[in-house]
Every structure is written in C-alpha cells, then in structure tokens.
Design a protein around this nucleic acid. Structure first.
Length: 494
RNA sequence: GCUGCCAUCGUCUAGCGGUUUAGGACAUCGCCCUCUCAAGGCGGAGAUCACGGGUUCAAAUCCCGUUGGCAGCGCCA
C-alpha cells in the first residue's frame, strides 16, 4: 500500500558536507531497500545565502557519490515539480496554504520588529522561562492592524500554536518523544518578503510530494513538533519521522568546518573513492548484527533498516575511512585504478603530471604497487621514479657502507658487476633476475640483501618500493643498466 | 536559562534479563611471511558496560535519580 517516498532536502548555502551525505545516503538506502522513490528537493528559501554555484556543487557531489535521485532537478515529474522551493514560491504554492490557515484563524499577521521579538525572548530567559514569542499580535483587531500598516510596519505571518497539551512523536529510530505544547511558540511561517520559512515550506512540500518518511538529522528533532502541529492544522496525514544520530568531530562537538575536512569535495580531491565514503558513512549510526564492515552498495541496500540505526552520536574517524579506501582500491583491478586515477587527475587539474608517462608502463606499475595505494593522490609519488630520466637519489647511506670487511666487497662492486653481467642477460624476467642477484651474493660471500639494496637504490633512488625484480623486469634491460651506470658515476666517480 | 536527545575498549559498534572470562572492526603493539615498503596471516594489550539507587533468583540489558556530553531555542535551514 504505502509506496515509500523519501527526500533529501539540502539548502544550497555551501558544499555538500559529510553530515549531509550521511543523511542523503540513509534516505537513499531506505528508499531502495523499500523499492520506493528517492527525491531531491532544493531548499533555497534563504535568499541571502543560497547560491546557484552551491546547487551545482551539491548536484555534482551527489552524482559522484552515485546517490541518484528518482525525482528532482533534472528528473522532474509534472505532478510534483518544481523541486526548487523558490520556484514553488513563484507559483504561489505556499501562499495558498498560508491563506488557508489565515482563514481558519490558525495563523495571523504579526507586526513586531526583530528587536521587539528579541527583547521578549531575552526577558523570558532572564526569568528562567522558555524563550518564545509571546503572541501579542494574536488578537489584534482589524483597526489595530490597519494602524500598524499605516505606521509603515510590515507583517510576517505566524502560526497559532496550541498552548496546552502535548505533541507526541513516534520516531522510527528513537521511539516515543513528548513535547509540551506550552513550550512551543507561534513561529513565523511566512517572512515579510513573502518567502515561506523552513518549517512551513518543508511541511507543505513533504505533503504535496507525498513524502512518506522523513529521515533527517537529530538536530531537527525539536522542529518536529512544530511541523506536526502544522499537519494537524492543515488536516493532513503525517509522514513517519526518523531522526538520525549526529556525526561528531574528534572533540565531541558536531562535525563542522573547524574540524578540517568536512566537504565531500575535499575527500574527492584527496583521492577517496565514493564507495569508500559511502561504506564508511553507512557504518556511522548503523550496523548489522554480525558487525560486517565492508559492503558493496548493493549489500547496503539489501541490508539497510531503520531498526538497526543507532541513537547515540558517533565520532568521525578519518583513520578508518582511510583503511576502507585502501580496501576499496585493493578490490579493483589495476586497469580500473588507472582509469580512476586519470579521472582524479582531470578533476584536480593535474593531467600534465603524467602527460609524458607511458600509459602501458603506468598500468603495469600500478599493478606492482596495487596493495600499497590508499589514496589516488599517492600514485604519482609512489610511481614517478619509473618515468624520470634522471633518478633523484635521496638515499645514499647504503652505498657508502662496506658490505664485507674481509673481502672488501662494496656497493660499487655490486653495481659495476651488475652493469656488466646484466648486459649479457637474455632472460630479463623477474625470476631470472632474482636468480642472478642471489648468485652474485653467493659469489661475493655477502648477504642477498646486500645485493638487493644497492640495486634498488641505484634503480629507483629509494630504499622502499615495489618488488625489486618485478620492477627491473618492467623497466627493461636498457633502462636498468642505464640507471645502474648513472648511480655508479654519481656515487663512486669523482 | 529553557527543552530535548545521548552515555559499552582511544574510535565505530555487537549485545535487546541468564548461552558473556562483554564479541567484531579501525587504530596501536608483537610475531610470522619477506629483497624494502605495503598487503596478508597469527597473537597481545585495551571496556570495573558514566555514576548511584532500585526491580529480579539473575542486569551492560528494565525503572528512577545524578553527572557529563551534544543539540535546538531566528523574518537560517
């Protein structure tokens, strides 16, 4: 009977942040799990802070995360469109319901100034009372109203909140929550400029868009009784509500800009995969009985349920996200990683970084370092030595130590010997190379590592990197010998 | 100040009255593997289940209180 319809309704006042993604994700997962619809609605009624750019950023971020919406910008359904609240305002959608409430006597114009309202709240607070608008404009007569208009005052429309009884919320995650109506005040539903406020527009649109479940952050829970009273006043059926726990920063305060990276865009720039972010965020405030950690999006959709959403807030842990990103990268083929990397370069405007890199060599190099990559952005620094003409030798300690005191075997000897012997080598496979190196160590009565390490530094300029012989095989004989000779000149020739 | 929400290893969490010496994951430490770094395997350490009262034969699990944290209290959303 109930075709599930949920929505994610961001306000375009900045980047899409982690908390927003989590809310969007849970809505998405719930709708897909229930075979319902996921709707995207832009709540741009804050005219001073909403921007077109922000809308674009949010839409793009959603697409990148593959949180596709069934209805919303770009996917308009005539029955419910438009999906931008300011466009809906232009179509007088909200005005109609404001008038309805006005006619029913459930709303009224209020002429108080911001200063007056502010003073009321302060006063109440000073008397240890809940800060609220005192309803002084509730019973203005027609004459009084006219007089204020003549005085040049503009009116907002306030909702006449019942002042007795309780509003009971049966939250799908938190259970029963009661609110004393006396504590609720006559909140503004339409601003003086004719734009509806959040609490009003939200209810109207959720009703008109036939939203069945409102899944949103816990920070909205105190808005819920206000909205519920609006449904009652309008005589509309209510959606079910589910309030998700907050995501906290390391200091225990709600995750915000001052905690560093909070925009999805920043994670994209760092080289995180969307599936890692999705998987990680799903784990914040939701879990399975067996505590499974790694999920594909299909598994998340299949296993997601509101009953298993937690109530306590959770701290965002970048270390675990990083681990998950490594897991997701490891689960891809080198080929896939290559294309992901290319996309990342495009996104970060870094394409020139690899413009002279051989594509095929890069793909194979990625395969060699496959399980070391945790972030796409690490790929250049992990593999650039494959592509340079001049190796940057930062590590030289290994070259200076004498390998065998007795026979005076040195790193120089290892390199010179290698430059000569490898020249004659027909079989340049990793296996053959390893055999060669081991034989050399045996001849010179030194440890295998004493051959491996100088070779590694000579070839790559570093003490750590991919498997030495696979790296040599991939570089090829000419390049390997060329680099060994360069190293000999650099370290041992004056 | 008012109201609401929350409280299990450093972090994410399992646990929904007895099967728990509280399980898993990340991080951390050690060992193994090994040409380095990773990855992987194995193991360790890490939680008097915030505290105090109840209820019960039995409580991390139910109830009450305390404390602490967070959130909301706009003509922002």
């Amino acid at each position: 009977m109930d075709n599930v319809r949920v929505r994610f309704a961001p306000s375009p006042t900045g980047d899409l942040h982690i908390g927003g993604v989590r809310t969007a994700l849970f809505n998405y997962l719930y709708s897909k799990n229930k075979n319902g619809k996921f709707i995207l609605r832009i709540e741009d009624t804050d005219e001073t802070r909403s921007t077109k750019e922000s809308v674009e950023v949010i839409l793009n971020a959603m697409k990148w995360l593959r949180l596709g919406w069934d209805e919303g910008p770009g996917n308009e359904i005539a029955e419910y469109a438009p999906y931008y609240q300011m466009e809906r305002k232009e179509k007088h959608i909200y005005r109609k319901y404001v008038d309805a409430l006005l006619n029913k006597g459930l709303a009224y114009p209020c002429y108080c100034t911001a200063e007056e309202v502010d003073a009321m709240r302060k006063e109440a607070q000073n008397n240890n009372l809940p800060p609220k608008y005192d309803g002084r404009c509730r019973h203005l007569t027609c004459e009084q109203r006219k007089q204020r208009e003549v005085d040049g005052r503009t009116a907002v429309i306030r909702f006449k909140m019942p002042q007795s009884g309780t509003t009971i919320l049966d939250d799908l995650i938190r259970g029963r929550v009661e609110f004393d109506n006396f504590l609720l005040d006559d909140f503004v539903i339409m601003k003086a400029n004719g734009v509806p406020t959040y609490n009003f527009a939200c209810v109207i649109d959720d009703y008109l868009m036939k939203i069945t479940h409102v899944l949103r952050g816990d920070d909205h829970i105190s808005n819920t009784p206000k909205q519920m009273q609006l449904y009652t006043a309008l005589d509309w059926p209510m959606p079910r509500f589910a309030h998700l726990s907050m995501i906290l920063g390391p200091d225990g305060a709600r995750l915000s800009k001052r905690h560093g990276h909070t925009s999805v865009l920043e994670y994209r720039k760092e080289g995180y995969l969307p599936e890692a972010l999705i998987n990680y965020l799903a784990l914040l405030g939701w879990s399975t009985q067996d505590s499974q950690q790694i999920f594909t999006i299909e598994e998340l959709i299949e296993k997601f349920s509101l009953e298993r959403c937690g109530v306590s807030p959770s701290t965002f842990d970048p270390a675990k996200l990083l681990w998950l990103n490594g897991e997701k990268i490891r689960s891809k083929t080198p080929q896939e990683i290559y294309y992901l990397f290319v996309d990342w370069l495009k996104y970060t405007n870094n394409e020139t970084l690899i413009s002279d890199w051989d594509e095929n060599l890069l793909k194979q190099a990625i395969a060699l370092e496959h399980d070391k990559i945790k972030l796409l952005k690490e790929i250049p620094s992990l593999l650039d030595f494959f592509f340079v003409k001049e190796v940057d030798y930062k590590e030289d300690a290994v070259m200076k130590t004498l390998l065998n005191e007795k026979s005076k075997v040195s790193a120089e000897m290892v390199l010179v010997e290698s430059a000569n012997r490898l020249l004659e080598k027909e079989d340049f496979s990793a296996n053959a190379l390893e055999q060669y190196a081991r034989d050399l160590a045996k001849d010179k009565e030194i440890k295998t590592g004493q051959v491996f390490h100088p070779l590694r530094v000579a070839i790559s300029g570093r003490t750590q990197g991919p498997s030495l012989f696979h790296m040599m095989e991939l570089m090829g004989k000419n390049e390997v010998i060329r680099r060994i000779n360069i190293a000999i000149n650099k370290f041992f020739k004056k």
